[in-house]
Structures are given as structure tokens and as C-alpha cells.
Amino acid sequence: MITVKNLTKSFGELEVLRGIDQHIAPNEKTVIIGPSGSGKSTFLRCLNLLEQPTGGQILFDGVEITSPACDINHVRRKMGMVFQQFNLFPHLTVMKNLTLSPTTLGLLNKEQAREKAEQLLIRVGLLDKANVYPAQLSGGQKQRIAIVRALAMEPQVMLFDEPTSALDPEMVGEVLDVMKQLAVDGMTMVVVTHEMGFAREVGDRVLFMDEGLVVEEGPPEQIFGAPQQARTQDFLRKVL
């Protein structure tokens, strides 16, 4: 579904990504772990071009999205993204947060969008919050809304950028539950996270990144059970 070829990204002198080759298959759950500054968030943000890659290619469904001719707005409709800081639109109600994009882009009319939003809110148990503003929600509720806001576009793949890192510990569970349910439903997911339990349970494939490279990859049993690289072993010893 997503093919990444020799992806590089520099911010000025700083090389954040130093050549990444990856293939993400449909329905696959890819979990990216690694220390801060390893480039995992930058890699994820390159996938929908929130960061413009310095070099290399990204193909989505066979289309080269890194080419200047590609209409990135069209591609982004099919790639949902969830941010660490939620980024809900504070001036709009929960319902409007969910319906803004589908109606603005003419994918659904107002009535259809409202119905779809209600279904999604039921799915995360927040239908009663439809008409409140984000400021009135807890962190966990905000992130659940952010997830269904992305889902309202019916994306083919969901990108998660440390979705639980800004949450109070007792709210992490409710967000992970929504993500697990999404995984069970067969969504293609790429998740950057520090939640090793989640990586182990949900991931089909775990990438360990350090210093702008994928140092080691494999099924969670292998990465967590028998890591091959010294750097991976060192990292896991510290976090587990």
C-alpha cells in the first residue's frame, strides 16, 4: 500500500532521516519505536507529506506522492492522521470537527455527514459530547474524537504520531482500546508509540529506529523477545 524508497530528510545541516526503505502492506499494523530524536515522527509525517522529504520516493497505491505533479490534498483524504497534541479545532463543536472536512470537500452532504459522525461517536462512546466544544473534554476524550475525526474521511490507512504521549496515565487505556478495535476491524495502521505493550499486542511488524535509520525490524516476538542489534537491546532494556 505504501512503499518508501531511500527516504531522506534534513533540517538544514541536521540529517533526520538517512535513507529508509519500507513497504507497508494493506491491513498491516506497523509499529515504530525508538528513542527521541531517532526520526520516527519525521518518518511518519513524511508519509503524508506534512514534512517535505529531502530525497527518495514515497508511493501510495502505486502513485508517487513525492512527485511535483501529485495532488497531495487528494492523497491525504485517504490517509488519516492522529497527533500527539490532538489538534482538535477549538472553535468548533465536536460534531463540526467531524463533519467539516467531508462536507467542505463535497464527499458527503450535511445530513450524511451528521449521520456518519453520529455512528462514529457511538463507536467511541461519546455521542453525548456531540454538541460540546473541545475545551470541555478530557485528554482521552479529545484523542478519541481526533481518531474518529480522521475516520470520518474513510481513510485507507491511519497514521498515529505518539497518540498517547500527551495523556494522563489513566486515560491511555481508553485511547488504546479504540486503536485496538480499529486494528481488529482491519485498518492499515502505522503507529509511532512508546507503549511497548500495545506494540507487542497489536503490531504485525515492529520497526526500531535510531539516528535516522531503521536499525532492526521484525515481528514483535522477535524484536521484544530476541533483539539482534546491540542498540535495540540497549533501548529495550531501558524502557521495559
Binding site: N48, L50, N73, H74, R76, R77, M79, G80, M81, F83, Q85, N87, L88, F89, P90, H91, L100, S101, T104, L105, R149, A150, M153
Partner: peptide, 29 residues
Amino acid sequence: DAGQFEAGRSLGLNYVQTMGLIIAPQVLK
């Protein structure tokens, strides 16, 4: 916050739509 702009763009809205529907109302306030 830059995240507001990124959230709009990640939902498929173009530059003008994001500016007009997400950034401008918050700026005005």
C-alpha cells in the same frame, strides 16, 4: 499552533480552506 494547520491539511483540506475555515476564525477571536 502549527498543529491546527497540520490537522486541517492532514484531513485533505487545501491551503485556502484550512486558512479560511480553521485558522481565520481563531485568529479573529
